[in-house]
Structure formats: structure tokens, C-alpha cells
Design a protein around this nucleic acid. Sequence first.
DNA 1: TATTAAGCGAGACGGTACGTCTCGTCTTAGA
DNA 2: TCTAAGACGAGACGTACCGTCTCGCTTAATA
Lengths: 199, 199, 199, 199
Amino acid sequence: MMPEPPPPNARRSIGAQRNPASAEAILSAAEALLSEEGYGGFSIEKVARRARAGKPTIYKWWPSKAALLLDVYQRQKSIEMPDTGRLEDDIIQFIDAILTHWRETPAGTIFRSVVAEAQSDETAGAALSDFATEREADTGFLIWRGLERREVRDDIRPAEAARWIVAYLWYRLLTGQLAAPGMTRADVRILVGGLERRP
Amino acid sequence: MMPEPPPPNARRSIGAQRNPASAEAILSAAEALLSEEGYGGFSIEKVARRARAGKPTIYKWWPSKAALLLDVYQRQKSIEMPDTGRLEDDIIQFIDAILTHWRETPAGTIFRSVVAEAQSDETAGAALSDFATEREADTGFLIWRGLERREVRDDIRPAEAARWIVAYLWYRLLTGQLAAPGMTRADVRILVGGLERRP
Amino acid sequence: MMPEPPPPNARRSIGAQRNPASAEAILSAAEALLSEEGYGGFSIEKVARRARAGKPTIYKWWPSKAALLLDVYQRQKSIEMPDTGRLEDDIIQFIDAILTHWRETPAGTIFRSVVAEAQSDETAGAALSDFATEREADTGFLIWRGLERREVRDDIRPAEAARWIVAYLWYRLLTGQLAAPGMTRADVRILVGGLERRP
Amino acid sequence: MMPEPPPPNARRSIGAQRNPASAEAILSAAEALLSEEGYGGFSIEKVARRARAGKPTIYKWWPSKAALLLDVYQRQKSIEMPDTGRLEDDIIQFIDAILTHWRETPAGTIFRSVVAEAQSDETAGAALSDFATEREADTGFLIWRGLERREVRDDIRPAEAARWIVAYLWYRLLTGQLAAPGMTRADVRILVGGLERRP
DNA sequence: TATTAAGCGAGACGGTACGTCTCGTCTTAGA
DNA sequence: TCTAAGACGAGACGTACCGTCTCGCTTAATA
């Protein structure tokens, strides 16, 4: 009935300050859980069990499932921008690198979870919206470099153009089309070349 | 101990066949619930209560939450294809019509729910993937008409081009950017005209 | 979507230990429910509702309906052994006291429920069997005192003789013959005096 | 969606009259179900499935689970009264014969189910009470023959004395003490000889 | 050096929802 | 008119999580 003393090797409080080992254990457990069971099998309860952490400890630092998911996603390593010297190839390589990353690491599952969570949690929704804007800006660098190289039309604004790329990436993820070799090249040709017949 | 007989005006069995009134009541209740409380407040339990239906009746016909959500979404009325005589305006009007539809009817919330559900339910995932392909084909009609009118480059394949449009629509929905007047026009200009500097 | 916090006056956790107030509320609710609706109207669901307790709280401490019923029965106050100085009167008074107790308090309904439950639940079956043995031993005290007083034949073993009394009590309960004044006296005469014609 | 035609070998209506084959199939299915799964696994639903009968057909002829259980019990073959020429042996043999019957055929399980059902169903309760009275009368025959043989005290009334025997039998059944060789002999000695020390 | 204050694990708590089972009623289609 | 079939509203089953609360311990910062 009385609480057992914890096993001697357990993490304990380190005083009136956050224990980084706990935060680390929780994030790792969440990541592992997501990659093993996906969003459907993800719960704070399981994370706590796996991390040997108390639920209130989790809620204290991440007030919602969404917050924890976002933190887990932020931990994933980011993708380097390719530099082939040619816009079209840059975009293709960038897209394929991200799709591969999503396919071969937990990152894809984690991000799908964030998107799902954002549909029912307003905080996550706002965070996702901000994140999207940020991705547009980052990705805009590819376009900006194309402008520098005078490959891209002068009236193109990098972030707006990048919006198409980000949307396309999410769409591939959410529809489960992460692995479709060749698809990217054809699709990117359309975006880069436009739809209009040239005079 | 004995189950109460239902009130005399309740829906009853109409024999060894599905009662369409129940199906209707369930779908309506689900739609109303989604539009009032969103995906987060959606549960089979609440749908059953609201529809005055038994849970087993729901599970009998829609084996998962995803199946019910998809059926609710299919009930939404579809959008007519605009025909302005000009590809760019067709696309802009089409996108804005859908965004408006999503913003002003429950359809947006419902579809966000379907997407969320698809991230944890494999069946819904497959259905969403199929649905996406279907939308690409439908939307491809706009491009095809542009080909007919010789507005569009000969080497463009309608469904592939349409994929960009569908992805863009989903992205606007999922990031909560349903109402951004003017945004669509600028973005579509990029897709239609392409990124490349003309020689 | 978010679970409502319980009303401020509700029972809450008192830490990582069982809250006796909850246990008490649950047992009381179960007892009240049984006495009002009988075994047929008894369900864990109703007990939880009535006790304002969560179902999992009940299942945590009483893993089956049978366990809860047995605990509720154990809470009933026990009957004092009469001491009239004469075996036959002791037995009659004992039997009538128990029948009255069963008739005028929830105890009778509760014990009938335990017996019923024991017919489909193995745990309850074993518990009932143990309980019966215990009752035989307890009731044997009446016989033992008769032996002490040299009223009872030397070769009688108290618990065996008491088995007849316990069986008789259960039979009266299960056949709904709790109130039949005079019946007990005649029946007990048979047990005490035996069937055999004396030489 | 439309109901399948039944398999060609199914029992069908034989017109505007009760089909005895259905009644038989239902009773057999109920008996088999009880003996295989016990009272806990017994349900009208399963009986109907097993008998390939419609639930309304069952409810039409047996208005409650209790009624069906009682009918199933009545179908069991009855036990012959032993005639050893000596009261005590008659009673021992009678008791052991019934316990053996209950132990080795479905009859024991069925009767336990009837008793359990009688604790929540008033109809079954009344039927069980009547049944008990009937058993007392039947069993009284043993005592009556003892009277005839002048083995039994003149003031003993057969049905009352038999009540002890019936109670004892039920008790052995309900506490799961069907198989305890030797127990019966010692216990019956007490009943027959009485508790009182002879002067 | 002693006290306080926060963090920590553990886990109980009131709840909601899950997906399944059975209840007893009802209607149909077919013989 | 009776049958098999099965849909129906109702509601209980036992389990998983939710987010909150309290406990008893541990430790760093403060007094």
C-alpha cells in the first residue's frame, strides 16, 4: 500500500531544477514509441512507463501530447540543402532527400503524428502553421539561389514558390507516397517549367 | 435488469435488412458532431447517443471511426468545375471555391478529421490515398481542358499537374490558411507560369 | 475532447495509495443497489455511477463482480450465537435470527447474489465453498456447547452436524421461504431427535 | 445487404403451427451449451445460433431464460428410488445417486443454472420454490417407507424430514462438493440418529 | 548548517471512450 | 400463420488513456 522506494538506480529529483536526464529519457521514449507503434499506439501513459517517468513530470514540461510531439520532431536532424548548380536538380534532390529521410527514419511517422494531432489540438495547429511558414522560408533559399543564378523569373518570390514545394512534400507524406522513384522528377519538371505553352 | 423498451416513437428494426433511417440518423449525427466539436470531440459513443442509435448498429455498418468519417465526407456536396475560358482563372476559381466550401461548411472539418484519422488507421490511410488519386484525376480535367484549348504545354499530363493543385489545397486546409484572399492568385501564377526565366 | 475536471467537492486521489473513502463509497453503493434492485439490477456500471467512482477504480480493487459481492457481504454485521441453555432452542433461535436478518436487511439479497454469481464465476465458487466451510465451523459451536453440556451424543462431530444447519439455512433462503413461522421448530425437532424410532 | 436465402437444408416453417423439430433443436442446443460452457457462457443468443433458430422463436415459446432452463432441466432423466430395506442405506444411496448424476451428466450444471437464474428472475424463483416442494414430497417417499417399516418415529412427517435431505443435496451441489466419498455416510448417520444423547 | 522549495517516481482518482456481447422487440420473406 | 434471419435501441462488459492530485523522497539553493 505504501509506495515502494524506487530501485536504487532510478532517476530521482536533482533538487529544485529540471532533471535533464528525465527530459532526455522522455523524449527518447516518445520517439522510440512512435517509431515502433506509430501515432495510433502513442500515449502519454506509455511514454511515462517506458521512460520510467511519472505522468505529472511529463505534463509539467509538455502540457499536451502535441507539445511533446513537436519537441520530438524538433530533435530530428535536419536535411542539408543540395547545391547542384541547377534549380531543377536542386529541387528534385531536396524533395527526394526529405522523402528518403521520412521513409527511413522515425521522422516521417513523427511528423505525420504532429499533423494529425494538429487537427484536434489548437495549440498544435498554431505551431504547425508557424512551422509551415518557417519551412517555406527555409525552402525559399533554393529559389533565392536560382534567382541569384538568374535561372528564375525576376517576379518570383522565394517563399511563395517554396510553398508549392512544402505542400507537395506534405502531400506525398500524408498520402503514403514516400517511395515512388521517378515521380518526383516528372512532377518537378511541371513546377519549374510551368503549365503555359511558350509562345 | 430487463432492458427498457424504447420509446414508442423510436426507430426500430424494419426486419432482416438495414434500416436506412438509422443510417441517415447516424451520418447526420456524426456530421453535426464534427461541425460542432471538431475531430477532438468526435467519438462513436457520442454519435450513438446523438443519433439515438446503439453502438453495435454503428460498428455493424462502419467497422471503424475512419469508415464513418469517410462516409460522412462523401455525403458532402461536391464542387462544380469553373469554366472561365482561361486556365489560370479556372484554377484560381476552383481553389477558392473549395477553400470557401471548407471554410463555410462542415466539409473542411470533416476532411481534416479524415486526414488525421488516416495517420493512425491503416484502412483510412489506404482510403485517403485512393481518394487523393481520384481527386488528382478529377482535378486533371481543368488541365485537360487547357490542353484542348492549346493553353497548356503538350507534354503536361493532366493528373500529374493536378497533383500540385490537390497538394496545395490540402496544405492550405491543414495549416489553417483557408482564408487568405489574394494569396491564391499569386501562388497560382507561379504554378501556371513556371519558375524558369524565359529565354 | 478534454476530460472535464471533477467537481471540486469530489473525492480525489490521496497519493499513491488506496483512498478508503472511495472503497467505502463503492461498497455502500453496491449494497444500496443490491437492496433496491436485487441481483438482476446489479452491475459494476451502476455501482460506479452511484458511488461517483470510475469503473477502473472498482476493477482495480475488486477484479470481478463476485469479489465485490463477497466484500459487500462480509460488511454485513454477523449474528450473535444464542445461549438458551438447551440445544434445540439454541438451534431454533439461531436459525430464526438468521432468517430474520436475511429477511429484514439487505443481507439476504446480497447472499443470494453471491450464490448466484458463484454458479458462473469460478473464483466466487471457490470463495463460496470456503465460506461454507467457515460457516460450518462457526455454527459447530452450538453443537460443541451441546456436547459440553452432555446434551449431544459423544460421537457427533460439531462441524458435520452444523453442515445440516447451514444447508437448511441456504435452502430456506434460496427457495424464498424466509418467513414461515413455526416451520423452523418442527424441522429442528427432526434434526435434533433424529429419524430413528427409539428402542 | 439483402438477406441471403437460407441453406437448402434449413428447417423452415411448417405452416401455422409450432414446429416440434425446432423446439427439440432449441432444447438440445441449450443443454449442449450449458454442459459445454456452463451457466456463464449460456445465452439465448448462442442457443439460437446453435439451434439455427430465430431468437423470436425461442422467446415465443420460452418467455425468459429461466423458462428455457427449467424446461431443459425437466428433460433430464430422473433418479430411481433405491430400496435396500433399511432407511439409512436408502437415504445414503439416494443422495449418492443424485450427486453422481449431477457430477457425471449435464444435470448438475443445468440445475445450478436454474438456481442462479432464480435469484434474479421472479418467475424462476417461484418455479424453483414449487420445484423444491415437489422434491420434498417425492423424497418423502423414502421416509414414508421407513414409517411403514416402523423404522421411523411415528411423529415424523415425511415431507418435513425430506426437506433436510433436499436441502443437503442442494448444498452439496452449490458448494461444489459433489465428489466426497464417505462424507455422505457420516452426515446421514447424524440425520437418521439425531443429535440427542439417548437416555 | 539547517530549512525550504522544487523536482521526481509512483500510482490512485473520476472520467470518457473503446469495441464486443447479450438482451428482448420488431419486421420481413418464404413456406 | 409460423419459421429463420437478422436489424434495432439499449446498456453492461472489462480495458486503455486522459489529465489531476497527493504522497514521500531527494537534492540544490537559501537563510
